[in-house]
Amino acid sequence: MKYDILNYADTRSGFGAGLLEAGKRNDNIVALCADLTGSLKMNAFASEFPERFFQTGISEANMIGMAAGLTIGGKIPFTGTFANFSTARVYDQVRQVVAYSQKNVKICASHAGISLGEDGATHQTLEDIALMKALPGMTVINTCDFNQTKQATIAIADYEGPVYLRFGRPKVPNFIPEDMPFEIGKAIVLEEGTDVTVIATGHLVWEALLAFDELAKEGISAEIINIHTIKPLDEEAIFKSLEKTKCVVTAEEHNILGGLGESVAGVLARNKPYPMEMVAVKDTFGQSGKPDELMEYYGLKSKNIVESVKKVLKRK
């Protein structure tokens, strides 16, 4: 592959860096956090702009409502808490006063998926993409590394409308070049190939690149596409690649139901079907363990992508 590991960093720190940068560029940006400022890496923003930072305590529902209210008067609120508490816990609030009310709120969620590790299934949301993409008008973004998360955070500040930005806890390879453009709703072709398309989001993007190398050794040419914006989905990029490769594997750290894979499957089913396999968590809850152990156990590693590619190639 043509990407190097620049360093190991957590995507949540990319969010913190992006939030600070966005805050410096635009005085209207405000941030709210429900007692997880350290975990969300919002400290830098909070100390740089104390008057624009609202510590709500452990009251996520109130935080979402306050964020919607802050838009009335021209503020651009970024809320921060874990993914589970950003979605399932406050779904009705997000639905009524953010999505249905068309408020310019950025719901920023860390610790998504199973890779948060030892805290276990209460905190490991694997349903959040499904919930958020079902809301009309909601943009859903899942970033893959520090640099992309930082860029996405800055990009959503300039975008008018509600956004769900999903990222994670562990330190992972940071490989997206700092100067790679980030455009909401635009897929990134990371590697070109001709035999199979692999569409990955979040932490699975690096695994997809590792799979690219492994497949290349066996003479299989994979096209690796990073879809960071799950909604709206870049259908054009998907079909452009599939017209060439004729089969696809999706990869995500989410339940197989309701995630990126189902979004891609829906687009194919409604337009032109191609053989498809999905790498995702098979409709189960997570458990405590080390992030890497869990990714291995739930089948979210490069070898699982390789297996799925071989399977889908046989169905071509």
């Binding site: 405000v30 008057e51 624009r52 609202f54 529902a61 109130n62 935080m63 979402i64 409502g65 306050m66 964020a67 919607a68 209210g69 802050l70 838009t71 009335i72 008067g73 021209g74 503020k75 609120p77 609030q93 009524q96 006063v97």
Partner: peptide, 15 residues
């Protein structure tokens, strides 16, 4: 939900 929204709007007024 309305009181939370009102509080947010009140904070925007202060800012």
């Amino acid at each position: 939900q309305g009181l939370s929204v009102a509080i947010g709007a009140a904070l925007a007024k202060k800012l």
